[in-house]
């Protein structure tokens, strides 16, 4: 050990704190070997220079620029703030209305209409209205079931398609 000089890799390992040889053995060698000590000092100088963080400055207001560029922190008008809520309400009403007028849910649920399911779905309410089939009691049940189904649909879309991505809504790129 005393007669064999340390390699560049060993000196770097020593300075990095990953020495393969015992630290004490390396230190002992460095005490007795001027050449290796000189090499160590060169590396120390190099490490010191490499840790100099000058010259990497971004503009002083960089963080503010970034925040404003993504649209965070800007005051938004009433409509923009509640746009999502309004869209959800309008969508829910539209879905319930569509289900109510274009299907005959109780008829579908009652089953036994395997072959007639197409008629039930696509002609249900309109067909019934036209033929005077629907009673007011039937309409109420249809409305309730349609409403529940619409809400379940909206929840599924929200939970698995929108929230799973969790993207901030105010991003402007």
């Amino acid at each position: 050990m005393e007669s064999k000089h340390l390699t560049d890799a060993e000196i770097q390992d020593y300075l990095d704190g990953n020495a393969v040889r015992e630290d004490s053995a390396v230190a002992e060698h460095l005490d007795s070997c001027g050449l290796c000590k000189k090499n160590l000092e060169l590396y120390k100088c190099l490490y010191s220079g490499l840790s100099d963080g000058a010259g990497y400055e971004l503009s002083v207001d960089f963080a503010d620029k970034v925040v404003s560029s993504v649209g965070l922190g800007e005051s938004r008008g009433f409509f923009r703030r509640y746009a999502n809520v309004l869209v959800t309400i309008i969508g829910t009403v539209a879905a319930i209305t569509a289900l109510y007028y274009f299907t005959d849910i109780p008829k579908i649920i009652a089953g036994g209409a395997w072959l007639g399911w197409f008629d039930s779905i696509f002609k249900g309410r309109i067909y019934s209205s036209m033929t005077g089939y629907a009673s007011s009691a039937g309409n109420t049940v249809s409305l309730i079931i349609s409403g529940v189904l619409a809400l379940v649909t909206i929840w599924v879309v929200d939970r698995f398609m929108i929230r799973s991505k969790r993207r901030p809504s105010s991003l402007v790129i």
Binding site: V70, L72, R166, P168, S169
Partner: peptide, 12 residues
Amino acid sequence: LAGDAKAFKSLV
């Protein structure tokens, strides 16, 4: 993610 601008500035 909740829209806190100060938090984002802090991250930056």
